[in-house]
Amino acid sequence: MTPKLLERSRLDDLVSILSNDYQVFGPVARKADVSFQEVSSAEMLDLNYTTTTLPPKKFFHLRETLLEYREGEFNAPELDLERSILLFGVHPCDLNAILRMDRLLSKEFVDLYYLRRRENSAIVALNCTEVGENCFCASLGTGPAIDKGFDLLLTDLGDSYLVEVGTLRGQRMIEDLNLEDASQADLRKKEELLEAARAKFKKSIRMEGLAEVAAESPDHEVWTLIGESGGLAGCFPCLSCGNCSLVCPTCYCYEVADIPDITLRAGVRRRELDSCQLLEYAKVAMGHNFRPDRKSRVRHWMTCKFGGAGGGLESSCVGCGRCIHSCPAHIDLTEVAKALWGE
């Protein structure tokens, strides 16, 4: 379908049409950060945002009740999927992360809870014409533009948004708006803006082959510097706080626990996002811990991002920069990569 043009002033028309069929969530500015929140009008949106605290995984994989039990009987609970959700203004890095999560959680064994939530969602993506100080998606090919995974894709051209359609569902979303076709000049402008954006990145990472380099360097000094003492490129040693895992759009590891109610005869089995940076993560019965030191835990996280995720050799990092921003100690994945490459 030919790309369309949506005048900036009509953004609210789009949001209100979407609100008829979906519960719409988009980037909303808060005191000092941006967060995906439910929106009812375009003016609530902050589409100039660079990043949000939690990635969109918060809608699919934060915590979940796996089973409910009562008097010895147990069953899977119904998911609360009354209305479909629509994520508005998802950046390419985050959309790429969602697509990777889709793959990681539907390998040999499928995570039904995740997939059901995903199937219940629609996505209006937003290409990045501005770049955050911690972004490095361009070097990974996961931004600042995207060409798949969305129902609609917006690019801010200034006075208007270029609207590209990715699915039939997306086509229906804009049907009633009677948008005019975009011109060749509009399409050229999109490419110019994205090209300009690519030139703005301050950080980059050389990812190809990094997984092997990291796997072959378990005793590299960089692990000691970020894990124990010294620091690297101005960072302090890791705090094991786990922020990096929670904010990473592709960290999917979770913890499971049974929570009985006060009668003890009923309760739930619940999962919740976990972090491999926490001391207890690799502890087994009898108290033995396979990653007792901070150095081995940071190394594990980094090598997972570099390519160990899901047992594959595909990087799960999309260059969103959240781990850098959210790290109180300023540990910077791109600096770790440089050190491993000997740069």
């Binding site: 950060d33 934060l62 786990g242 922020n243 626990a257 929570i259 926490l278 207890e280």
Partner: peptide, 27 residues
């Protein structure tokens, strides 16, 4: 129930992030 209580020993940050709070320290 005759078992240890399930009390996690991780940071407050984890709970903060699970609540989708902005970060008072880094923000």
């Amino acid at each position: 129930l005759g078992r240890d209580p399930y009390l996690r020993r991780h940071s407050v940050c984890i709970e903060c992030k699970l609540k989708d709070n902005g970060c008072l320290l880094t923000d």
